[in-house]
Design a protein around this nucleic acid. Sequence first.
DNA 1: CTCGAAACGGACCGTGCGGTCAACTTGTTA
DNA 2: TAACAAGTTGACCGCACGGTCCGTTTCGAG
Lengths: 188, 188
Amino acid sequence: MSPRADAARNRSSLLSAAVEVFAEQGVDAPVAEIAHRAGLGKGTVFRHFPTKDDLIAAIVLDRVTRLTELASELAGAADAGAALLEFMRYAARQRQQLDLSFLSADLGVEVGEAQLRMSLAITALVDRARAQGALRPDVTGTDVMLLMCVPNDVVKHVPDARPDLWERYLAILFDGLRPEGARPLPPF
Amino acid sequence: MSPRADAARNRSSLLSAAVEVFAEQGVDAPVAEIAHRAGLGKGTVFRHFPTKDDLIAAIVLDRVTRLTELASELAGAADAGAALLEFMRYAARQRQQLDLSFLSADLGVEVGEAQLRMSLAITALVDRARAQGALRPDVTGTDVMLLMCVPNDVVKHVPDARPDLWERYLAILFDGLRPEGARPLPPF
DNA sequence: CTCGAAACGGACCGTGCGGTCAACTTGTTA
DNA sequence: TAACAAGTTGACCGCACGGTCCGTTTCGAG
């Protein structure tokens, strides 16, 4: 049986509302607020997502999937270094709109598998960029995956920052990933 | 009137216990746990620190002050670049032991002033390093202050990481701050 | 040693949250 | 349109936390 029409509509309303509310108030925002924003009752939220973490997981899954798709598309670009930079820009923009850490906090197996797929796609991108000499030889896909959240995390600490301030720190970070003048790295 | 001897002792026990507990469980750890760890009653915590935030502020104040002192000492070093790197290493180690963000979250004026003093000391260090050609021309003290938390924040996302993994990301970051091969930075 | 003030302890209170449930409404299908 | 399953609702529950309060203990000055 496919879900009832209104149920499907409400589910997606809830997801939109959750993204909005989490963006404004952080993930600690009460579930009731999300329900209200979607014009629904609190019980409905729990009908669609048995637990608040399940709701968060659904959002994270969507975002991780998008990132994976972009990384895969970019894998064929001629200039892998430029492609990687574009990927990191997209990730930063996505994270600027809603800051959810999708790395820690084990949310279910489904998200875990999606994270793994993303990790693979990023590693492919990084490997090509490194092979083309756009990255220092000792940097890995895992490094990039960990570092790609940095620009937003940094900017979060400055109040009233211009919305594109993260570009500045992405630039510094990316210069640190380049081969020019790179000192050998401590081991993983 | 100076405080009673046992009161002073208990106050410092509470601070130690709070550092321990916050390090293990994060700042959301219940106050009762801290009291228990110090072998005291919950009421005693609130006698010394009217609010949980006041307790956190006391810890932050201590750590910011230490950083400021170190930065001041290092200001006279011959190699300002090396001095700055050492400063960032100390900051990372301190933050590894207990991860408290002392940048956001306005904790009282006292902490605010201490943050300002630290900002000044770091800027002095950075200015000297830049003048010596150890840093790219367009990087500022504020940049470094924002970025010095990065290595720990990154490592936080990887479970079971070797305790000195932050060194790797500090190295990448610092290479990004160096003048070699630096692209011009987007504005502040 | 005495005694008052300072410090302590932990039962207690209010609040806000995630999650439940049983009565009610609505979409769908035959 | 009848009738049932699917969906919705918001009052309700339990819990955990920050903070209060007052009876009790302890320090230390005289």
